[in-house]
Structures are given as C-alpha cells and as structure tokens.
C-alpha cells in the first residue's frame, strides 16, 4: 500500500503500524514527533496505530540545542 510520508508518496508493507515503520527506518521515536492524518500521536500509541492506504504521515526529527 501507499502512504504520503513527509509530503511524498511511499510504498510500505500492508497492515504495518507506525512504530514498526519507524523501526524499519531506524528512526529514534524519542527524538521524533509523528503526525498521522493531521493529529500528533503520542509515542505510547505509535505501536497501536495501524497505517492504512493513502494515510498521511509527517515525521519531524528534532535535534538538541537551545
């Protein structure tokens, strides 16, 4: 199936949850904010949120400093 990932179409495995996708992409969920279909998803819900065809996912990576 296909989702829109950070603004671009991307083919992903059917029935995968957000956490699994982040794991496959080797993204540290402690340093990213995830927006799924216009809603920010708390990290404890990433493993229970399945992705569906044509979903929109924004993954914003944060770096330290301030």
């Amino acid at each position: 199936m296909e989702i829109i990932f950070n603004g671009k179409a991307r083919e992903i495995q059917d029935g995968i949850c957000i956490q699994e996708l982040l794991n496959q992409m080797q993204l540290d969920c402690m340093q990213v904010v995830v927006e799924h279909n216009n809603n920010i998803i708390p990290r404890q819900r990433l493993a229970e949120t399945p992705l569906k065809n044509s979903d929109t996912l924004e993954v914003i990576h944060f770096v330290g400093g301030g």
């Binding site: 402690m30 340093q31 990213v32 904010v33 809603n39 920010i40 998803i41 708390p42 990290r43 944060f62 770096v63 330290g64 400093g65 301030g66």
Partner: peptide, 26 residues
Amino acid sequence: DIAEQKVMLIENFAARFPDRPMVTGS
C-alpha cells in the same frame, strides 16, 4: 535544550490542546 524533552512537550501539549499552535526550535 534536549531533543527528547522537545518531543515530550509537543506530544503532551498537542494531546490536551490539539487546536492550539506550537512554535518550536530545532
């Protein structure tokens, strides 16, 4: 200052006040 803290703040404020804007630095 710390990336994990930035994420923690944004997730928790958005969970409670999803329609209020946030301005972050990174």
